[in-house]
């Protein structure tokens, strides 16, 4: 007989990405055996997450302030905006610490099957930013999926009358990677996106 309290938590955890029944049970048993107020601390963190995280009114990033730390940072270059599908992608780019511009989170990509058209994405807001904030360049960093590419091309259409420059993030050989291990699809992309050396 399983305690409904335990079962309840297992069921909740199971709904999280990457967690199956076994992992959920491991987490629950780990927590039950944990010392020193770990459960309370975790509960507090979760409550805080629910209460304090909000969407940035400018770029769509998630953080505990509006504007978010990126938009609110005076050091960041304000004429470059990197367009990403999801907040996760923003985090992936931030991790490299190489990018000094701002972001715009679309909240998805065009997908007729999923019922996502331009109105379901935050494209209107992006247009507003580009036209009123003196943006010079948009780096389109959507995924290389069919939908990601289609969305990139749609953005080209949206901004074709504007003076903003659109660039596409490069796709190809991973840094430190051996050419012989690269799959042919990636290789084709890498060759297509080659750049002049001299």
């Amino acid at each position: 007989m399983v305690s409904p309290v335990i079962q309840n938590l297992v069921n909740r955890l199971r709904r999280l990405p990457g967690i199956g029944t076994r992992s959920a049970e491991r987490i629950v048993f780990h927590l039950m055996a944990a010392q020193g107020g770990e459960i309370a601390a975790l509960a507090d963190s979760l409550t805080e997450l629910g209460e304090r995280i909000c969407t940035c009114g400018i770029c769509g990033n998630l953080s505990d302030s509006d504007p978010c730390p990126v938009c609110g940072n005076p050091e960041r270059e304000r004429e470059i905006i990197c367009v990403v599908e999801q907040v996760e992608d923003l985090y992936a780019i931030e991790r490299s610490s190489q990018y000094r511009g701002l972001y715009h989170v679309l909240g998805g990509v065009l997908s007729p099957i999923a019922g996502i058209g331009p109105n379901e994405l935050s494209i209107g807001k992006l247009v507003e930013r580009v036209r009123h904030k003196g943006v010079r360049e948009l780096i389109v960093a959507t995924n290389t999926s069919t939908e990601g590419e289609a969305t990139a091309l749609y953005l080209v259409h949206v901004f074709k009358e504007d003076r903003v420059r659109l660039t596409r993030i490069a796709h190809g050989i991973p840094v430190g990677g051996h050419l012989s291990y690269v799959d042919s699809g990636t290789m084709a992309k890498a060759l297509e996106g080659r750049r002049p050396l001299s």
Binding site: L110, P112, G117, P118, T146, E149, A150, T151, A152, L153, Y154, H157, V158
Partner: peptide, 10 residues
């Protein structure tokens, strides 16, 4: 047409 264009291209 503009929304379709990206899928046409693919």
């Amino acid at each position: 047409v503009p929304e379709l264009a990206g899928f046409d291209d693919e």
